[in-house]
Design a protein around this nucleic acid. Structure first.
Length: 508
RNA sequence: GGCGACGUAGCCAAGUGGUAAGGCAGAGCUCUGCAAAAGCUCCAUUCCCCAGUUCGAAUCUGGGCGUCGCCUCCA
Protein backbone atom coordinates (compact mmCIF):
# COMPACT_ATOMS: atom_id res chain seq x y z
CA UNK A 1 0.00 0.00 0.00
CA UNK A 2 1.16 3.50 -0.80
CA UNK A 3 0.22 6.66 1.06
CA UNK A 4 0.81 10.34 0.49
CA UNK A 5 2.98 11.70 3.25
CA UNK A 6 2.70 15.42 3.88
CA UNK A 7 6.09 15.29 5.58
CA UNK A 8 7.83 14.26 2.37
CA UNK A 9 5.23 15.59 -0.03
CA UNK A 10 5.18 12.36 -1.94
CA UNK A 11 3.38 9.07 -2.21
CA UNK A 12 5.48 6.39 -0.59
CA UNK A 13 5.16 2.72 0.29
CA UNK A 14 3.63 2.19 3.68
CA UNK A 15 4.94 -0.26 6.25
CA UNK A 16 4.25 -0.30 9.97
CA UNK A 17 7.12 0.74 12.18
CA UNK A 18 6.87 -2.44 14.16
CA UNK A 19 5.04 -5.67 14.86
CA UNK A 20 2.42 -5.41 12.16
CA UNK A 21 0.74 -2.83 14.32
CA UNK A 22 -0.38 0.46 12.86
CA UNK A 23 -0.72 3.23 15.39
CA UNK A 24 -2.75 6.18 14.20
CA UNK A 25 -3.47 9.48 15.87
CA UNK A 26 -6.17 11.61 14.30
CA UNK A 27 -6.83 15.10 15.54
CA UNK A 28 -10.44 15.07 16.51
CA UNK A 29 -13.15 17.51 17.32
CA UNK A 30 -13.31 20.55 19.52
CA UNK A 31 -16.95 20.28 20.59
CA UNK A 32 -17.54 23.94 21.26
CA UNK A 33 -20.18 23.98 18.51
CA UNK A 34 -22.16 21.51 16.43
CA UNK A 35 -20.01 19.42 14.12
CA UNK A 36 -20.40 20.19 10.43
CA UNK A 37 -20.21 18.16 7.25
CA UNK A 38 -16.54 19.04 6.80
CA UNK A 39 -15.66 17.24 10.01
CA UNK A 40 -17.57 14.26 8.69
CA UNK A 41 -15.50 14.12 5.54
CA UNK A 42 -12.24 14.10 7.43
CA UNK A 43 -13.14 11.49 10.00
CA UNK A 44 -14.86 9.37 7.41
CA UNK A 45 -11.66 9.19 5.42
CA UNK A 46 -9.60 8.01 8.36
CA UNK A 47 -12.30 5.45 9.04
CA UNK A 48 -11.83 3.99 5.56
CA UNK A 49 -8.06 4.06 5.96
CA UNK A 50 -8.38 2.17 9.20
CA UNK A 51 -10.78 -0.39 7.76
CA UNK A 52 -8.43 -1.05 4.87
CA UNK A 53 -5.39 -1.42 7.12
CA UNK A 54 -7.32 -3.97 9.15
CA UNK A 55 -8.23 -5.77 5.94
CA UNK A 56 -4.53 -5.89 5.04
CA UNK A 57 -3.95 -7.78 8.26
CA UNK A 58 -2.53 -5.06 10.46
CA UNK A 59 -3.59 -4.55 13.99
CA UNK A 60 -4.72 -0.95 14.13
CA UNK A 61 -4.83 1.35 17.13
CA UNK A 62 -6.71 4.50 16.27
CA UNK A 63 -6.71 7.40 18.68
CA UNK A 64 -9.01 10.34 17.99
CA UNK A 65 -8.88 12.98 20.65
CA UNK A 66 -11.52 15.35 21.95
CA UNK A 67 -10.42 18.87 22.79
CA UNK A 68 -12.89 19.37 25.57
CA UNK A 69 -11.41 22.57 26.93
CA UNK A 70 -10.70 25.64 24.83
CA UNK A 71 -11.51 29.34 24.54
CA UNK A 72 -14.70 28.81 22.64
CA UNK A 73 -16.36 26.38 24.94
CA UNK A 74 -15.51 28.64 27.86
CA UNK A 75 -16.96 31.57 25.97
CA UNK A 76 -20.08 29.60 25.05
CA UNK A 77 -20.57 28.69 28.68
CA UNK A 78 -20.10 32.27 29.76
CA UNK A 79 -22.68 33.54 27.30
CA UNK A 80 -25.29 30.91 28.04
CA UNK A 81 -24.59 30.86 31.74
CA UNK A 82 -24.28 27.10 31.56
CA UNK A 83 -21.51 24.78 32.55
CA UNK A 84 -18.77 24.29 29.98
CA UNK A 85 -18.70 20.57 30.64
CA UNK A 86 -22.36 20.26 29.77
CA UNK A 87 -21.97 22.31 26.63
CA UNK A 88 -19.01 20.29 25.43
CA UNK A 89 -20.73 17.07 26.42
CA UNK A 90 -23.84 17.94 24.44
CA UNK A 91 -22.01 18.79 21.26
CA UNK A 92 -19.83 15.75 21.64
CA UNK A 93 -22.80 13.42 22.07
CA UNK A 94 -24.37 14.87 18.95
CA UNK A 95 -21.14 14.42 17.05
CA UNK A 96 -20.75 10.84 18.20
CA UNK A 97 -24.26 9.98 17.10
CA UNK A 98 -23.64 11.52 13.69
CA UNK A 99 -20.44 9.54 13.30
CA UNK A 100 -22.29 6.33 14.03
CA UNK A 101 -25.02 7.18 11.57
CA UNK A 102 -22.31 7.59 8.96
CA UNK A 103 -20.91 4.16 9.92
CA UNK A 104 -17.70 5.69 11.19
CA UNK A 105 -16.41 3.09 13.61
CA UNK A 106 -15.60 4.25 17.11
CA UNK A 107 -11.89 4.92 17.61
CA UNK A 108 -9.97 2.55 19.86
CA UNK A 109 -9.25 5.46 22.16
CA UNK A 110 -11.08 8.73 22.36
CA UNK A 111 -9.09 10.65 24.96
CA UNK A 112 -10.40 13.91 26.35
CA UNK A 113 -7.76 16.54 26.96
CA UNK A 114 -8.95 17.25 30.48
CA UNK A 115 -8.41 13.62 31.42
CA UNK A 116 -4.73 13.86 30.54
CA UNK A 117 -3.70 16.94 32.46
CA UNK A 118 -1.00 15.03 34.41
CA UNK A 119 0.61 13.80 31.20
CA UNK A 120 0.35 17.28 29.71
CA UNK A 121 2.01 18.83 32.75
CA UNK A 122 4.73 16.24 32.69
CA UNK A 123 5.54 17.08 29.11
CA UNK A 124 5.57 20.80 29.79
CA UNK A 125 7.91 20.23 32.70
CA UNK A 126 10.27 18.38 30.42
CA UNK A 127 10.13 21.20 27.91
CA UNK A 128 10.84 23.78 30.60
CA UNK A 129 13.67 21.67 31.97
CA UNK A 130 15.30 21.35 28.56
CA UNK A 131 15.01 25.05 27.82
CA UNK A 132 12.39 24.73 25.09
CA UNK A 133 9.73 26.40 27.18
CA UNK A 134 9.64 29.36 29.52
CA UNK A 135 7.29 30.80 32.09
CA UNK A 136 5.97 34.35 31.95
CA UNK A 137 3.16 36.19 33.66
CA UNK A 138 0.25 34.79 31.65
CA UNK A 139 1.44 31.27 30.95
CA UNK A 140 4.07 28.84 29.81
CA UNK A 141 5.22 29.22 26.22
CA UNK A 142 7.13 27.10 23.77
CA UNK A 143 10.15 28.85 22.34
CA UNK A 144 9.85 28.25 18.61
CA UNK A 145 13.40 29.43 17.94
CA UNK A 146 14.65 26.58 20.09
CA UNK A 147 13.51 24.07 17.50
CA UNK A 148 15.58 24.41 14.32
CA UNK A 149 13.29 22.34 12.12
CA UNK A 150 10.26 24.51 12.85
CA UNK A 151 8.30 24.99 9.64
CA UNK A 152 9.52 21.85 7.92
CA UNK A 153 6.11 20.18 7.72
CA UNK A 154 4.28 23.16 6.33
CA UNK A 155 7.16 24.46 4.25
CA UNK A 156 7.62 27.83 5.88
CA UNK A 157 10.48 29.67 7.37
CA UNK A 158 10.42 31.67 10.54
CA UNK A 159 11.13 35.02 8.95
CA UNK A 160 8.18 34.74 6.59
CA UNK A 161 5.95 33.76 9.46
CA UNK A 162 7.08 36.68 11.50
CA UNK A 163 5.48 39.11 9.06
CA UNK A 164 1.97 38.03 9.94
CA UNK A 165 2.56 37.17 13.56
CA UNK A 166 1.54 39.39 16.41
CA UNK A 167 1.47 39.34 20.12
CA UNK A 168 -2.06 39.70 21.35
CA UNK A 169 -2.75 42.06 24.26
CA UNK A 170 -2.07 40.34 27.53
CA UNK A 171 0.35 37.83 26.10
CA UNK A 172 3.77 38.00 27.64
CA UNK A 173 5.61 35.77 25.24
CA UNK A 174 9.13 36.62 24.12
CA UNK A 175 8.64 36.01 20.43
CA UNK A 176 5.48 36.50 18.39
CA UNK A 177 5.82 32.98 17.01
CA UNK A 178 5.92 31.29 20.40
CA UNK A 179 2.76 29.50 21.42
CA UNK A 180 1.13 28.69 24.73
CA UNK A 181 1.61 25.35 26.44
CA UNK A 182 -0.22 26.38 29.57
CA UNK A 183 -2.52 29.38 30.05
CA UNK A 184 -2.84 30.74 33.54
CA UNK A 185 -6.38 30.98 34.78
CA UNK A 186 -8.42 34.14 34.37
CA UNK A 187 -11.36 34.96 36.62
CA UNK A 188 -14.30 32.67 36.09
CA UNK A 189 -12.40 30.13 33.99
CA UNK A 190 -11.99 26.44 34.72
CA UNK A 191 -8.50 25.54 35.82
CA UNK A 192 -6.21 22.77 36.98
CA UNK A 193 -3.29 23.12 39.36
CA UNK A 194 0.23 23.12 37.95
CA UNK A 195 3.76 23.69 39.23
CA UNK A 196 3.57 27.22 37.78
CA UNK A 197 0.07 28.09 38.88
CA UNK A 198 -3.51 27.12 38.09
CA UNK A 199 -4.52 27.20 34.45
CA UNK A 200 -5.37 25.06 31.48
CA UNK A 201 -3.53 23.44 28.59
CA UNK A 202 -2.83 25.22 25.35
CA UNK A 203 -4.33 23.63 22.31
CA UNK A 204 -1.33 21.83 20.82
CA UNK A 205 0.24 20.19 23.84
CA UNK A 206 -2.67 17.84 24.50
CA UNK A 207 -2.12 16.00 21.22
CA UNK A 208 1.59 15.59 21.84
CA UNK A 209 1.00 14.36 25.36
CA UNK A 210 -1.86 12.00 24.56
CA UNK A 211 -0.18 10.54 21.50
CA UNK A 212 2.92 9.86 23.55
CA UNK A 213 0.90 8.33 26.35
CA UNK A 214 -1.43 6.16 24.27
CA UNK A 215 0.68 5.23 21.26
CA UNK A 216 4.29 5.88 22.16
CA UNK A 217 6.72 7.58 19.83
CA UNK A 218 7.38 7.28 17.05
CA UNK A 219 4.01 6.08 15.85
CA UNK A 220 2.88 5.32 12.33
CA UNK A 221 0.33 7.81 11.08
CA UNK A 222 -0.71 11.22 12.29
CA UNK A 223 -3.74 12.63 10.58
CA UNK A 224 -6.12 15.51 10.47
CA UNK A 225 -7.59 18.12 8.22
CA UNK A 226 -5.47 20.09 5.82
CA UNK A 227 -5.99 23.20 7.89
CA UNK A 228 -4.18 21.62 10.82
CA UNK A 229 -0.83 21.46 9.06
CA UNK A 230 -0.08 24.94 10.29
CA UNK A 231 0.16 25.80 13.04
CA UNK A 232 -1.26 22.84 14.94
CA UNK A 233 0.81 19.99 13.57
CA UNK A 234 3.88 22.12 13.20
CA UNK A 235 3.62 22.94 16.88
CA UNK A 236 3.02 19.35 17.84
CA UNK A 237 6.16 18.36 16.03
CA UNK A 238 8.14 21.11 17.74
CA UNK A 239 6.97 20.03 21.19
CA UNK A 240 7.31 16.32 20.73
CA UNK A 241 10.49 16.19 18.72
CA UNK A 242 12.25 18.61 21.05
CA UNK A 243 12.06 15.83 23.59
CA UNK A 244 12.73 12.99 21.19
CA UNK A 245 16.26 11.72 20.58
CA UNK A 246 15.36 10.56 17.09
CA UNK A 247 12.66 12.28 15.08
CA UNK A 248 10.11 12.02 13.64
CA UNK A 249 7.32 11.68 16.19
CA UNK A 250 5.13 10.22 13.47
CA UNK A 251 6.24 8.38 10.37
CA UNK A 252 3.48 9.44 8.00
CA UNK A 253 1.46 12.64 8.16
CA UNK A 254 -1.82 12.55 6.31
CA UNK A 255 -4.16 15.44 5.71
CA UNK A 256 -7.66 15.40 4.31
CA UNK A 257 -8.73 18.07 1.88
CA UNK A 258 -11.15 20.63 3.16
CA UNK A 259 -14.79 20.70 2.34
CA UNK A 260 -16.02 23.93 0.84
CA UNK A 261 -19.55 25.13 1.20
CA UNK A 262 -20.77 27.49 -1.49
CA UNK A 263 -17.18 27.65 -2.65
CA UNK A 264 -15.99 28.79 0.75
CA UNK A 265 -14.35 26.96 3.53
CA UNK A 266 -16.64 26.04 6.38
CA UNK A 267 -15.30 27.35 9.60
CA UNK A 268 -16.32 28.31 13.03
CA UNK A 269 -15.33 31.90 12.48
CA UNK A 270 -17.34 32.21 9.27
CA UNK A 271 -20.26 30.30 10.72
CA UNK A 272 -21.29 29.25 7.24
CA UNK A 273 -22.48 25.78 7.94
CA UNK A 274 -25.38 23.72 9.05
CA UNK A 275 -25.08 21.16 11.83
CA UNK A 276 -24.15 17.74 10.55
CA UNK A 277 -26.91 16.20 12.59
CA UNK A 278 -29.54 18.27 10.76
CA UNK A 279 -28.16 17.25 7.39
CA UNK A 280 -28.25 13.61 8.39
CA UNK A 281 -31.89 13.99 9.33
CA UNK A 282 -32.72 15.03 5.80
CA UNK A 283 -30.60 12.57 3.84
CA UNK A 284 -29.61 8.95 3.86
CA UNK A 285 -26.31 8.94 5.76
CA UNK A 286 -24.86 6.27 3.53
CA UNK A 287 -25.47 8.45 0.49
CA UNK A 288 -23.39 11.17 2.09
CA UNK A 289 -20.75 8.58 2.78
CA UNK A 290 -20.79 7.47 -0.83
CA UNK A 291 -20.56 11.06 -2.00
CA UNK A 292 -17.33 11.52 -0.09
CA UNK A 293 -15.96 8.22 -1.32
CA UNK A 294 -16.39 9.40 -4.89
CA UNK A 295 -13.92 12.22 -4.37
CA UNK A 296 -10.23 11.87 -3.63
CA UNK A 297 -9.58 12.56 0.03
CA UNK A 298 -6.87 15.11 -0.58
CA UNK A 299 -8.83 17.29 -2.96
CA UNK A 300 -10.79 20.28 -1.86
CA UNK A 301 -14.41 19.41 -2.36
CA UNK A 302 -17.27 21.77 -2.90
CA UNK A 303 -20.29 20.46 -1.08
CA UNK A 304 -23.80 21.10 -2.24
CA UNK A 305 -26.88 19.51 -0.83
CA UNK A 306 -28.11 18.71 -4.34
CA UNK A 307 -25.16 16.44 -4.89
CA UNK A 308 -26.48 14.10 -2.20
CA UNK A 309 -29.48 13.26 -4.38
CA UNK A 310 -27.27 11.84 -7.09
CA UNK A 311 -25.36 9.82 -4.55
CA UNK A 312 -28.62 8.50 -3.13
CA UNK A 313 -29.61 7.19 -6.55
CA UNK A 314 -26.19 5.66 -7.06
CA UNK A 315 -26.32 3.98 -3.66
CA UNK A 316 -29.71 2.47 -4.39
CA UNK A 317 -28.43 1.01 -7.64
CA UNK A 318 -25.42 -0.47 -5.98
CA UNK A 319 -27.50 -2.13 -3.29
CA UNK A 320 -29.99 -3.33 -5.89
CA UNK A 321 -27.20 -5.09 -7.75
CA UNK A 322 -26.03 -6.69 -4.53
CA UNK A 323 -29.57 -7.85 -3.91
CA UNK A 324 -29.73 -9.28 -7.41
CA UNK A 325 -26.57 -11.30 -6.82
CA UNK A 326 -27.86 -12.60 -3.54
CA UNK A 327 -31.21 -13.57 -5.01
CA UNK A 328 -29.63 -16.10 -7.36
CA UNK A 329 -29.88 -19.64 -5.93
CA UNK A 330 -26.50 -21.27 -5.51
CA UNK A 331 -25.21 -23.55 -8.23
CA UNK A 332 -27.71 -22.44 -10.80
CA UNK A 333 -25.44 -21.78 -13.76
CA UNK A 334 -22.25 -23.16 -15.20
CA UNK A 335 -19.42 -20.79 -15.85
CA UNK A 336 -16.18 -19.38 -14.66
CA UNK A 337 -17.00 -17.51 -11.44
CA UNK A 338 -13.40 -16.80 -10.56
CA UNK A 339 -12.61 -15.42 -14.00
CA UNK A 340 -15.52 -13.02 -13.76
CA UNK A 341 -14.60 -11.84 -10.29
CA UNK A 342 -10.99 -11.41 -11.32
CA UNK A 343 -12.13 -8.74 -13.73
CA UNK A 344 -13.17 -6.59 -10.79
CA UNK A 345 -11.71 -7.48 -7.41
CA UNK A 346 -8.02 -6.92 -8.20
CA UNK A 347 -8.73 -3.48 -9.62
CA UNK A 348 -10.78 -2.59 -6.57
CA UNK A 349 -7.98 -3.45 -4.18
CA UNK A 350 -5.35 -1.89 -6.40
CA UNK A 351 -7.21 1.39 -6.19
CA UNK A 352 -7.29 1.29 -2.41
CA UNK A 353 -3.62 0.39 -2.38
CA UNK A 354 -2.90 3.58 -4.27
CA UNK A 355 -3.21 6.15 -1.51
CA UNK A 356 -6.74 5.01 -0.67
CA UNK A 357 -8.24 5.91 -4.02
CA UNK A 358 -11.83 5.36 -3.01
CA UNK A 359 -13.13 7.03 -6.12
CA UNK A 360 -11.38 4.51 -8.34
CA UNK A 361 -12.50 1.69 -6.07
CA UNK A 362 -16.10 2.86 -6.24
CA UNK A 363 -15.99 2.90 -10.01
CA UNK A 364 -15.09 -0.79 -10.02
CA UNK A 365 -18.13 -1.57 -7.88
CA UNK A 366 -20.36 0.34 -10.25
CA UNK A 367 -18.90 -1.55 -13.19
CA UNK A 368 -19.66 -4.80 -11.43
CA UNK A 369 -23.19 -3.64 -10.73
CA UNK A 370 -23.63 -2.77 -14.38
CA UNK A 371 -22.30 -6.17 -15.43
CA UNK A 372 -24.74 -8.01 -13.19
CA UNK A 373 -26.55 -9.87 -15.96
CA UNK A 374 -23.35 -11.17 -17.46
CA UNK A 375 -21.99 -12.08 -14.05
CA UNK A 376 -25.13 -13.96 -13.08
CA UNK A 377 -25.28 -15.75 -16.43
CA UNK A 378 -21.66 -16.76 -15.92
CA UNK A 379 -22.49 -18.43 -12.62
CA UNK A 380 -20.58 -15.89 -10.54
CA UNK A 381 -23.49 -14.46 -8.60
CA UNK A 382 -22.51 -15.81 -5.21
CA UNK A 383 -18.87 -14.89 -5.74
CA UNK A 384 -19.94 -11.41 -6.77
CA UNK A 385 -22.16 -11.09 -3.73
CA UNK A 386 -19.34 -12.15 -1.46
CA UNK A 387 -16.92 -9.71 -3.05
CA UNK A 388 -19.39 -6.86 -2.94
CA UNK A 389 -20.13 -7.54 0.68
CA UNK A 390 -16.46 -7.42 1.53
CA UNK A 391 -15.85 -4.34 -0.62
CA UNK A 392 -18.74 -2.38 0.79
CA UNK A 393 -17.72 -3.37 4.27
CA UNK A 394 -14.29 -1.92 3.64
CA UNK A 395 -15.83 1.32 2.49
CA UNK A 396 -18.28 1.37 5.36
CA UNK A 397 -21.33 0.98 3.20
CA UNK A 398 -23.64 -1.46 4.83
CA UNK A 399 -25.07 -4.13 2.56
CA UNK A 400 -27.65 -5.20 5.10
CA UNK A 401 -30.38 -5.33 2.54
CA UNK A 402 -31.23 -8.97 2.54
CA UNK A 403 -33.69 -11.50 1.36
CA UNK A 404 -36.15 -12.77 3.91
CA UNK A 405 -37.63 -16.10 2.96
CA UNK A 406 -41.12 -16.31 4.39
CA UNK A 407 -44.16 -18.47 3.85
CA UNK A 408 -44.51 -18.03 0.12
CA UNK A 409 -40.78 -18.18 -0.38
CA UNK A 410 -41.06 -19.68 -3.83
CA UNK A 411 -42.82 -16.62 -5.16
CA UNK A 412 -41.95 -13.92 -2.68
CA UNK A 413 -38.70 -12.58 -1.43
CA UNK A 414 -38.49 -9.30 0.30
CA UNK A 415 -35.61 -7.24 1.41
CA UNK A 416 -35.45 -4.21 3.56
CA UNK A 417 -33.19 -1.81 5.26
CA UNK A 418 -33.86 0.46 8.15
CA UNK A 419 -31.22 2.47 9.89
CA UNK A 420 -28.50 0.12 8.81
CA UNK A 421 -29.72 -2.72 10.99
CA UNK A 422 -30.56 -6.27 10.13
CA UNK A 423 -33.98 -7.77 10.83
CA UNK A 424 -35.38 -11.26 10.81
CA UNK A 425 -38.90 -11.92 9.68
CA UNK A 426 -41.05 -14.72 11.02
CA UNK A 427 -43.67 -16.53 9.00
CA UNK A 428 -46.91 -14.60 8.73
CA UNK A 429 -49.57 -15.80 11.14
CA UNK A 430 -52.76 -14.55 9.58
CA UNK A 431 -52.59 -12.85 6.25
CA UNK A 432 -56.37 -12.41 6.01
CA UNK A 433 -56.32 -10.32 9.16
CA UNK A 434 -53.93 -7.91 7.53
CA UNK A 435 -56.40 -7.36 4.75
CA UNK A 436 -59.12 -6.09 7.02
CA UNK A 437 -59.56 -2.40 7.57
CA UNK A 438 -59.12 -2.74 11.29
CA UNK A 439 -55.84 -4.52 10.76
CA UNK A 440 -54.75 -1.72 8.47
CA UNK A 441 -55.32 0.80 11.17
CA UNK A 442 -53.24 -1.22 13.59
CA UNK A 443 -50.59 -1.67 10.97
CA UNK A 444 -50.48 2.03 10.26
CA UNK A 445 -49.90 2.70 13.92
CA UNK A 446 -47.19 0.13 14.10
CA UNK A 447 -45.46 1.51 11.05
CA UNK A 448 -45.55 5.04 12.31
CA UNK A 449 -43.06 3.94 14.90
CA UNK A 450 -41.12 2.00 12.34
CA UNK A 451 -40.00 4.90 10.21
CA UNK A 452 -37.89 6.35 12.98
CA UNK A 453 -34.33 5.88 11.83
CA UNK A 454 -32.98 4.25 14.91
CA UNK A 455 -36.28 2.97 16.19
CA UNK A 456 -37.28 -0.63 16.13
CA UNK A 457 -39.16 -1.13 12.88
CA UNK A 458 -42.15 -3.34 12.86
CA UNK A 459 -40.64 -5.34 10.08
CA UNK A 460 -42.97 -8.25 10.59
CA UNK A 461 -46.00 -6.10 9.94
CA UNK A 462 -44.52 -4.81 6.72
CA UNK A 463 -43.58 -8.26 5.58
CA UNK A 464 -47.09 -9.50 6.24
CA UNK A 465 -48.50 -6.89 3.95
CA UNK A 466 -45.93 -7.70 1.31
CA UNK A 467 -46.98 -11.33 1.40
CA UNK A 468 -50.64 -10.47 1.32
CA UNK A 469 -50.02 -8.21 -1.63
CA UNK A 470 -48.11 -10.90 -3.48
CA UNK A 471 -51.02 -13.25 -2.99
CA UNK A 472 -53.49 -10.66 -4.21
CA UNK A 473 -51.33 -10.12 -7.26
CA UNK A 474 -51.15 -13.79 -8.13
CA UNK A 475 -54.93 -13.92 -7.77
CA UNK A 476 -55.11 -10.97 -10.22
CA UNK A 477 -56.82 -8.88 -7.58
CA UNK A 478 -54.90 -5.75 -8.49
CA UNK A 479 -57.27 -3.42 -6.69
CA UNK A 480 -56.43 -5.11 -3.43
CA UNK A 481 -52.73 -5.18 -4.27
CA UNK A 482 -52.73 -1.45 -4.93
CA UNK A 483 -54.65 -0.82 -1.74
CA UNK A 484 -52.00 -2.68 0.22
CA UNK A 485 -49.22 -0.78 -1.47
CA UNK A 486 -50.97 2.51 -0.80
CA UNK A 487 -51.34 1.60 2.84
CA UNK A 488 -47.64 1.04 3.14
CA UNK A 489 -46.90 4.22 1.26
CA UNK A 490 -49.08 6.18 3.64
CA UNK A 491 -47.05 4.72 6.46
CA UNK A 492 -43.83 5.86 4.85
CA UNK A 493 -42.86 2.55 3.31
CA UNK A 494 -42.01 2.47 -0.38
CA UNK A 495 -42.58 -0.87 -2.09
CA UNK A 496 -40.85 -1.82 -5.30
CA UNK A 497 -41.77 -4.97 -7.19
CA UNK A 498 -38.96 -7.25 -8.22
CA UNK A 499 -39.04 -10.25 -10.51
CA UNK A 500 -39.87 -12.71 -7.78
CA UNK A 501 -41.06 -10.55 -4.97
CA UNK A 502 -40.78 -7.06 -3.67
CA UNK A 503 -38.38 -4.89 -1.77
CA UNK A 504 -39.22 -2.08 0.56
CA UNK A 505 -37.44 0.83 2.10
CA UNK A 506 -38.32 3.55 4.49
CA UNK A 507 -39.14 6.48 2.24
CA UNK A 508 -37.23 9.68 2.91
C1' G B 1 2.73 40.23 0.16
C1' G B 2 4.84 34.96 1.30
C1' C B 3 3.73 29.71 0.77
C1' G B 4 0.67 25.78 -1.32
C1' A B 5 -3.08 23.32 -4.11
C1' C B 6 -6.40 22.91 -8.02
C1' G B 7 -8.65 23.88 -13.25
C1' U B 8 -11.06 16.89 -17.21
C1' A B 9 -18.52 16.34 -20.56
C1' G B 10 -24.58 20.09 -18.32
C1' C B 11 -22.94 18.84 -12.87
C1' C B 12 -19.53 15.74 -9.68
C1' A B 13 -15.13 13.09 -10.57
C1' A B 14 -10.74 9.05 -11.49
C1' G B 15 -6.62 9.00 -14.26
C1' U B 16 0.54 11.89 -13.68
C1' G B 17 4.06 9.74 -20.63
C1' G B 18 0.86 5.25 -24.64
C1' U B 19 -4.03 7.08 -26.97
C1' A B 20 -10.08 9.85 -21.72
C1' A B 21 -12.78 5.12 -15.31
C1' G B 22 -17.10 5.92 -12.70
C1' G B 23 -21.53 8.59 -10.64
C1' C B 24 -25.66 12.13 -11.46
C1' A B 25 -28.57 14.47 -15.12
C1' G B 26 -30.36 13.77 -20.39
C1' A B 27 -32.13 10.70 -24.97
C1' G B 28 -33.89 6.01 -27.02
C1' C B 29 -35.17 0.88 -25.94
C1' U B 30 -36.45 -3.77 -22.97
C1' C B 31 -39.17 -5.68 -18.98
C1' U B 32 -43.97 -4.57 -16.68
C1' G B 33 -51.60 -5.26 -14.45
C1' C B 34 -50.41 -0.29 -12.72
C1' A B 35 -46.36 2.49 -9.96
C1' A B 36 -41.61 2.01 -9.76
C1' A B 37 -37.08 -0.34 -9.94
C1' A B 38 -33.57 -2.69 -12.80
C1' G B 39 -31.13 -3.78 -17.39
C1' C B 40 -29.39 -2.43 -22.50
C1' U B 41 -27.74 1.47 -25.97
C1' C B 42 -26.13 6.55 -26.74
C1' C B 43 -23.82 10.92 -24.50
C1' A B 44 -15.55 14.51 -24.13
C1' U B 45 -11.42 13.08 -31.40
C1' U B 46 -10.59 15.60 -26.07
C1' C B 47 -8.61 17.25 -20.65
C1' C B 48 -8.38 26.35 -18.86
C1' C B 49 -5.07 29.01 -22.72
C1' C B 50 -0.24 29.52 -25.34
C1' A B 51 4.61 27.74 -26.38
C1' G B 52 8.13 23.72 -25.77
C1' U B 53 10.26 18.50 -24.84
C1' U B 54 8.86 13.58 -26.99
C1' C B 55 7.62 8.65 -31.94
C1' G B 56 3.66 9.83 -28.50
C1' A B 57 1.37 14.73 -23.41
C1' A B 58 -4.76 15.49 -19.68
C1' U B 59 -0.16 13.64 -17.76
C1' C B 60 6.71 16.51 -18.29
C1' U B 61 8.89 21.92 -18.87
C1' G B 62 8.16 27.36 -19.32
C1' G B 63 4.69 31.38 -19.53
C1' G B 64 -0.34 33.20 -18.95
C1' C B 65 -5.44 33.25 -17.06
C1' G B 66 -8.85 31.60 -13.30
C1' U B 67 -10.51 29.41 -8.57
C1' C B 68 -9.47 28.00 -3.66
C1' G B 69 -6.63 27.22 0.78
C1' C B 70 -2.77 28.30 4.62
C1' C B 71 -0.03 32.46 6.84
C1' U B 72 -5.41 33.91 13.19
C1' C B 73 -9.50 29.57 16.04
C1' C B 74 -10.47 25.62 12.56
C1' A B 75 -11.35 18.55 10.16
Amino acid sequence: MRLFNTRTRSVEPFAPLRDGRVRIYVCGLTPSAEAHIGHARSFLFFDVLRRYLVYLGYRVDLVRNVTDIDDRSIEAARQSGGDWREIVGGYYASFQRSMRRLHVLDPDHEPHATAYVPQILEMIEELVATGHAYVVEDGVYFRVRSFPRYGALSGRNLDELLIGARIAPGEGKDDPLDFALWKFVKPGEPSWPSPWGPGRPGWHIECSAMARELLGEPFDIHGGGYDLIFPHHENEIAQSESLLPAPPMANVWMHGGLLLFDGRKMSKSLGNFEPLSALLDRHEPQAIRLLFLQTGYRKPMNFTEDSIDGATTALRRLLAAYDAFRAVPAGEAEGDPQGLIDEFAPRFFAALDDDVNTSGAMSVLFELAAAQNRVIAGGAASAAAAFMHQAMDLLGISPVQRSAPIEAAATVSSSFQVGGADYVVEAPQDVDAVLSDAAFARLREALDGAVELDGEPKAQAVELVIVARAQAKSAKDFARADRLRDALKAAGIAVTDLKNGASWTVAG
